[in-house]
Amino acid sequence: MRRAQAAGPILGALSLMALSALVLWPVVAGDSPWPLAPGDYLEARGQAESGAQNLVSAIYLGYRAYDTLGEAIVLLVAVTGAIGMIASAGDARGGAADTRFGGAARRRTELLDVVTGKLGPVVLVFGVYVMMFGHISPGGGFQGGVVVASGIVFLSLGRRSSHGPRITRAGTLAAVEALSFLVIMLAVGLGLVTGSGFMGNPLPGASPVVSIVVLNALIGLKVGAGISLMCVAMLAEANEPW
């Protein structure tokens, strides 16, 4: 009986590995050539058509901007869900949760205060740089937004009291995220009014790179605010009234 119980997980693991090998074998052993047509097309015409030197930006804000819009919505929904779960968790056991690690008091040290307080603004500036220059160098809205979010997390770790800079407050971050998403929707809908269609270039004479730069900045704001909102909420500040 006991032997049978011990054999169960081993059999399960073996069959799992066999199944994975079956599924992954074509991936590992296949030697079909890489399809070169899309890459060659982008190399030849991508910069002329989108105006962006960085072809990755040209794809995700030019050729595939619909996809990016959906991605931004997914991020918004995920942030909303995570914040909802964290904020409504409350103290179900009346504070009986595990407090062995001291909570907020022991997390603050002089070293943490000094390092994160000085590093935070630098990281913020670098994030804005990555965000704004995504069309000519590696980077873009999502990458820059994450760097901005880590800068905000630094600032919120480094503050000494609960009266930190306004940028680390959950209410401000939520407002920034909601506003930037609204502006994104307005910006991509502007083409409907001027006659070039949804997500079309609203100004007939303008270079298409303008829309890439504007969308990079807006998406960076939105991603930075959303991710730092989640982090700030998870840093045990969820119990504070917003």
Binding site: A78, G81, A82, M85, A89, G90, A97, V146, M234
Partner: peptide, 17 residues
């Protein structure tokens, strides 16, 4: 990142409960 955040939110909630 979205999936990780949601999963961590659920874990947080379960830990609270």
């Amino acid at each position: 990142v979205c999936v990780t955040a949601l999963a961590l939110g659920m874990a947080f909630r379960l830990h609270r409960a």
